[in-house]
Simulated assay, not measured.
Amino acid sequence: MSKGIGFTSKPVDLYSRWTTGGTVKLKYPDDFRAHFGKRTVDAIPVGDDRGDWTVVLYHVEGGPTKYTSVVCNGFHA
Results as ranks from 00 to 15, higher is better:
76 H>N: 15
42 D>A: 12
55 V>P: 00
70 V>M: 13
22 G>T: 03
40 T>L: 02
53 W>E: 03
68 T>P: 04
33 R>Y: 06
60 V>K: 09
31 D>V: 00
65 T>V: 13
40 T>W: 01
59 H>S: 13
43 A>V: 01
31 D>P: 01
12 V>H: 01
68 T>W: 13
70 V>H: 11
68 T>R: 15
18 W>Q: 10
33 R>C: 03
15 Y>M: 07
63 G>E: 08
67 Y>V: 09
16 S>E: 10
39 R>L: 04
62 G>T: 11
72 C>L: 11
34 A>V: 07
18 W>K: 11
7 F>L: 00
49 D>F: 09
53 W>Q: 04
21 G>K: 05
53 W>T: 02
30 D>W: 01
25 K>P: 03
19 T>K: 12
15 Y>I: 01
47 G>N: 15
60 V>Y: 08
58 Y>N: 07
25 K>V: 15
37 G>F: 03
64 P>F: 09
1 M>W: 02
57 L>C: 11
53 W>C: 03
14 L>K: 02
54 T>L: 07
48 D>N: 14
55 V>E: 01
75 F>L: 08
68 T>V: 14
17 R>I: 03
57 L>W: 15
23 T>W: 11
16 S>N: 08
44 I>C: 07
77 A>F: 09
23 T>F: 12
38 K>R: 12
4 G>Y: 00
75 F>R: 03
41 V>P: 01
52 D>I: 06
38 K>Q: 10
33 R>Q: 11
31 D>C: 00
47 G>S: 15
19 T>D: 12
39 R>W: 02
74 G>P: 04
26 L>H: 06
24 V>N: 07
54 T>H: 04
48 D>H: 11
7 F>V: 00
37 G>I: 03
54 T>V: 09
9 S>P: 02
47 G>V: 12
2 S>Y: 05
46 V>R: 11
40 T>K: 02
15 Y>R: 09
27 K>R: 14
63 G>I: 05
